[in-house]
């Protein structure tokens, strides 16, 4: 762990780099809101954002946002509308990248944000899909962020809220899912990616200060590792400056939430 930045700051910078300039991004809750802001102010000034409550923007507000519905996110919007209208764009395949918060993910990128244990009497009740399942099924590709723990990165999720690659590369096509599927899992220890055409997640980079042994120990399956495994690039000074400007009290990036 670096003195220069927190684990969350590294995750935000890594998530921001998933956004390419000019893309239409379906921004979820929490850290991705910050990631879009950082991307917009650094390498992706022309990336546009869609928010499921009914907003489109072409620039991130220069303000702290606790939720996508905070008033500064409406000022300067390109479109304030109803949810079904932004979902329409995603259903047409217009969304290049979506972000989904995760509680539990498996080797094929299936996400569970609903129930741990039997749904009729769950051991843990998680909040549910929100727009997560819609993003997972309809966007061209998506990324999820979560803490890297064996109870979160599991061999097989017990409930698929937001489908990844099901049980293998061909699963999405067989079930008629229109979108492309997961592209990356950004965790507190590294970044996992998926092979072209889908399939099983592999470790692509490890965050500075962590070891392969540590990542393997915190993963609930026998993790495949990229041939060219390297370190996750550290956040640049510019990225850190934007993260701290958009999150001045460390609401997202210095507190454990």
């Amino acid at each position: 762990m670096s003195e220069r930045y927190t684990a969350q700051e590294l995750m935000v910078a890594a998530a921001a780099r998933e956004i390419k300039d000019g893309e239409l991004v379906f921004v979820g809750m929490r850290l991705p809101i910050l990631a879009y802001g950082v991307a917009h102010h650094t390498h992706a000034p022309r990336a546009r954002a869609l928010y499921e409550l009914g907003l489109m923007r072409e620039q991130a507000p220069d303000a702290f946002l606790g939720t996508m519905g905070d008033p500064p996110n409406v000022v300067g919007a390109l479109w304030a509308t109803r949810m079904s209208n932004v979902m329409a764009l995603m259903a047409q395949g217009e969304v290049d990248l979506g972000f989904i918060g995760g509680a539990e993910v498996d080797r094929f990128g299936n996400l569970n944000t609903s129930y741990i244990g039997d749904p009729s009497r769950p051991r843990t009740k998680l909040p549910g899909s929100g727009g997560g399942a819609d993003i997972a099924i309809l966007s061209r590709r998506w990324v999820t962020l979560m803490r890297h723990e064996p109870r979160r990165l599991v061999e097989r999720v017990s409930y698929v809220t937001s489908p990844g690659y099901g049980d293998g590369p061909d699963w999405r096509r067989r079930h008629g899912l229109p979108g492309g599927g997961p592209a990356a899992i950004v965790t507190t220890l590294g970044v996992l990616r998926f092979p072209e055409g889908g399939g099983e997640a592999y470790l692509a980079t490890i965050h500075p200060g962590h070891s392969l042994e540590e990542v393997r120990g915190a993963t609930g399956w026998d993790l495949t590792v990229a041939d060219d495994l390297g370190p996750t690039p550290e956040p640049t000074d510019e990225e850190l400056a934007w993260i701290r400007r958009l999150d001045p009290d460390g609401f997202w990036t210095r507190a454990d939430r």
């Binding site: 979902m87 259903a91 609903s114 129930y115 749904p119 899909s129 399942a133 819609d134 997972a136 099924i137 309809l138 409930y159 698929v160 809220t161 937001s162 489908p163 099901g166 699963w171 999405r172 079930h175 008629g176 899912l177 229109p178």
Partner: peptide, 13 residues
């Protein structure tokens, strides 16, 4: 009719 939720266990609950 919609394509969203195809493949999700939400269909089961």
């Amino acid at each position: 009719p919609t394509r969203t939720l195809l493949g999700s266990d939400i269909l089961k609950t």
